[in-house]
Simulated assay, not measured.
Amino acid sequence: MGSLTFKRAFAEPVAIGVQSCRRGAVTGNDSVLVLGAGPIGLAILEVARARGAMVYVTDVDPKRLLTAAHLGAQTLDAGPGLLENVMKLTNGEGMPVVMEATGNAKVMESTTDLVAAGGRVVIVGIVPAGTSISFPGLDLTRKEMSIVGSRASVDCFSESLELLASGAIRYPEIASRFEPEQAVAVFDRLVEPNHGLHKVVFTRESK
């Protein structure tokens, strides 16, 4: 599989990153906080950086944070001190853009504390059906924040492919490559906590 052909396998997750950044109106003047350094969080990181934004990423998994740092993010610990650290970084204002990519309801609810007044919150993570999310009503008016969801990637694939072809996206570099014959063992591993794999791609190429 050629290099460009291999990169095309990442068009879909990168397109989700494109849509998320469109929904958050991310520009080169923004600082963006990405909550979660899984496959989608990393795609958002890459697209936001390609737009010129300063990107901060947080996650509970130190290995994921190392990957985010490799891709150019400033990393923050996801522990109880996250809000305090964000406020120190932003002179008490909060982040202009907060992208939630964990699918954790409590993390989603924390976005209103982390975002700046007049800022944008983009919810990308998916919670189980029937799960409710609560936001403090006063903050919605007091901070004049915008909260939007992001799921689809309509009309995003052309931009995704252009970013991949240009080399602006390094996401494919961290892929976990396997031969097709290894599929059963790989899927068994993927259901384990802390499996240590990144975006899995089955290819006839050697690792």
Rank of each mutant, 00 (worst) to 15 (best):
G137R: 11
R64G: 08
G125C: 08
V55N: 03
A101P: 09
L82M: 01
S134V: 13
N91E: 15
V97P: 03
G92D: 05
E100N: 00
A78P: 07
A78N: 09
M95G: 07
I126Q: 06
M95F: 11
P62M: 03
P62F: 01
G94I: 03
E100L: 06
I126Y: 09
T141Q: 14
L114Y: 01
T102A: 08
T112F: 11
V127A: 13
Q74D: 12
M87D: 03
G137S: 14
R64D: 09
V60Y: 04
T67F: 10
L83E: 15
T90H: 07
T131H: 05
T75H: 09
L140Q: 11
T112G: 07
M145W: 10
L65P: 04
G119W: 09
T131G: 09
G103A: 07
N85V: 06
A69M: 11
D113I: 10
V127F: 07
M99P: 06
A117W: 09
A117T: 14
M54D: 12
Y56F: 06
V55C: 05
N91C: 12
M87E: 08
N85A: 15
P128T: 09
M54L: 14
P136V: 08
A105C: 05
H70S: 14
G103M: 05
G125P: 03
A78R: 00
G72A: 08
L71E: 04
P136G: 07
L65F: 02
M108I: 10
G72Y: 02
L76I: 00
T112L: 14
V57G: 03
A101D: 11
M99L: 09
A69V: 05
G137T: 14
M145P: 06
E109M: 13
D77G: 06
M108N: 07
E100P: 02
G72S: 04
N104G: 12
V55A: 05
F135N: 02
V115P: 04
E100D: 03
A53F: 10
V98D: 05
S110D: 13
T90G: 00
Y56M: 02
K143S: 11
E100C: 00
T67G: 04
G137Q: 10
L140K: 08
S110Y: 12
G92V: 01
K106P: 04
G119H: 05
V115C: 10
E144N: 14
V127E: 12
D61G: 12
L138P: 04
T75L: 06
P136A: 09
L66N: 13
L89E: 08
I123Q: 13
G79K: 02
K106E: 14
G92R: 12
E84I: 01
T112R: 05
G52Q: 07
G52T: 02
G72Q: 03
